[in-house]
Design a binder for these strands. Structure first.
Lengths: 338, 338
DNA sequence: ATCCCATCTGGGATCGATCCCACAATCTCC
DNA sequence: GGAGATTGTGGGATCGATCCCAGATGGGAT
């Protein structure tokens, strides 16, 4: 059905070897021969069989991007950045999603490796630390990003989560808020821990101690954010400000705040970590700590490419941190005396 | 470095052939032998080389999902649905993006085919109609979705675009609106044409004729939506209602409406086609025609799988249409007399 | 004891592209 | 004109898993 290089060679009247050389730009091919082969290839609409080439060469020109999910503005930005930039460098970045299931993650990574993907960039579930370390050490490049599960020793690119949360906290403190609720991710993830640590640090810097009833640390599911907000606002001592520390928490929280008809910022000042259209277009527009997913994507890809080109030797790993900045919009106001 | 089946065979004390049979569940292997081989495979952490298998078998268990971009809520839902459902059926769906560039699309599709992907689901740029038809006809399954470029003869799954726009138009007409602006996609895409046709049909059904100054048909870029809204509202005869007929138009329009401080629905009623969190959480929540991306993703995958399992023979194609429904929220109100 | 059949296993070939090595053809210079 | 250098080309082997075919082994029947 599909044409092989043998067909091209036959049509051009040369051997496989010569045809292969002609098409791959090898110098020791007579120009006239090369043209003949190229014409034959064009005529037959010959497409190189990537599988055969990958088997022989041991590499495929593909990069695997393994994500927990796609429904998140900063993750999309990262994926898009990696794909565009990878394409420009001659690689194709293919995205697979694990739905946050470690078993599925393991299966996908193994499958990608079996397909001779040249390396993977993984937003990990946290369930395959040993496997990822082992792969990376054995020469299959792995770059972790966003979440850096405990014990992962591969190269990694993460947000400056602690600083981001400290920025958010500091902003609210500067506005006079003291009862600042924190709605963040689980302690089982690095970002969850670090963002919480930044919040605590911000409070301590002002001589305050975190109050357990002001803190909710939930899984990365929007529903938890909604429930948490309902609880926080139902408490005897309501917070005057809220930090929604990740995309999912924000999504759930904003929905619930809208449902409850909470007036922002008069009744509650809100700062979110991780920007999105949803927050930019909210009424009022929500103040955020913008985490710069594009830089994170760029760094993750560049780190992987450096590994692939041999620029960075195997075994030499480092964790890079991408900076974030506060974008003040209209969802935060000075604490009013009552 | 990595272990091959030869290593497993050697450790188990059998030949490649037997090892292969033992691992693939072939019946004619002595149970004891099978166990020995399995133990050896486990001990060596043997992973089958998917490339070698694909070369030999001619298929890979992979499905390519080729999208123009990822930054769109309904596209994400489609991609996620295909990946989850595909995984459940033993396939891995890998997503690549073309950035709406036909050259890149061609390159990606060829590359995926070269990697023996079993089939592709394509949200096309429209620039490779002949190639896609040719591939599909030659036995490489192609399913088109969402956009169906002119001349594409593969199986396809699309929204009922015309009906969706007619629903939106009818809703506004029923509220008494007559000056209804339409902000849609370019006529070069099927969805652009069909949604416009639905709008026209809706108007005609009420004895109205479309006014050219009420219609803007722009490329799928949010900026155009913003500009168009500014123009529409700056005109002598302002519209009393607006239909934002796709995600990008909506995104640009809502941003601009927010910037201009237009009061919705009092000054302008708004209906969008394609739902998203942005619209659900807007103040006021935006009335939409929900296009059911999940069903579309399911149908697209099922259509491809039917082709892969031989259930649907090559050459037998059909276009399926996924229904949509109006979700009335708070962005539309009866036309007030002034 | 001999023959046959069922069960199980091993070697060779295959998928398609590439690389190494050897050899043929042409050219250069003395 | 012949030795040696240069250029261009073809055949074989290889990557790793799988399938076909032949053959080995063992048990049962006569």
């Amino acid at each position: 059905m599909t044409k092989t290089i043998e067909d091209v060679a036959a049509l051009a009247g040369v051997s496989r070897s010569t045809a292969s050389r002609a098409l791959s730009g090898h110098p020791s091919v007579h120009p006239a021969t090369r043209e003949r082969v190229q014409a034959a290839a064009a005529q037959l609409n010959y497409q190189v069989d990537a599988v055969a080439r990958a088997l022989r060469a041991g590499s495929s020109g593909l990069i695997g991007v393994v994500l927990t999910n796609l429904v998140n503005a900063s993750i999309q930005a990262i994926a898009t950045t990696i794909q565009n930039r990878g394409h420009a460098s001659g690689y194709e970045a293919l995205v697979a999603t694990t739905n946050n299931d470690p078993d599925r993650e393991r299966e996908i990574v193994n499958r990608l490796r079996g397909h001779r993907v040249d390396g993977v960039i993984v937003m990990g579930t946290g369930g395959n630390t040993a496997m990822l370390n082992e792969l990376d050490r054995s020469g299959f490049p792995v770059v972790a990003m966003i979440r850096l599960p405990r014990g992962v020793q591969t190269s990694a690119v993460v947000y400056d989560d602690r600083h981001a949360a400290e920025l958010a906290t500091g902003h609210l403190l500067a506005k006079g808020h003291r009862r600042i609720a924190f709605l963040g991710g689980p302690a089982s993830t690095r970002s969850g821990r670090e963002r919480y640590a930044g919040y605590v640090r911000g409070l301590r810097g002002h001589g305050l101690t975190p109050q357990s009833e002001m803190v909710v640390r939930a899984p990365f599911e929007p529903e938890f954010g909604g429930k948490a907000v309902a609880e926080l606002l139902g408490a005897a001592q309501r917070p005057t400000a809220l930090i929604a520390a990740n995309h999912e928490a924000t999504s759930g929280a904003m929905q619930e705040l809208g449902r409850l008809g909470v007036v922002i910022p008069e009744e509650l000042s809100v700062v979110a970590i991780e920007d999105s259209d949803l927050l930019r277009f909210w009424h009022p527009a929500v103040t955020v700590v913008d985490t710069d997913p594009i830089s994170l994507g760029e760094r993750a890809l560049d780190t992987l490419l450096a590994r692939l080109t041999g620029e960075t030797p195997d075994g030499q790993t480092a964790t890079q941190v991408v900076g974030s900045q506060l974008l003040e919009r209209s969802s935060t106001s000075p604490l009013s005396r009552r």
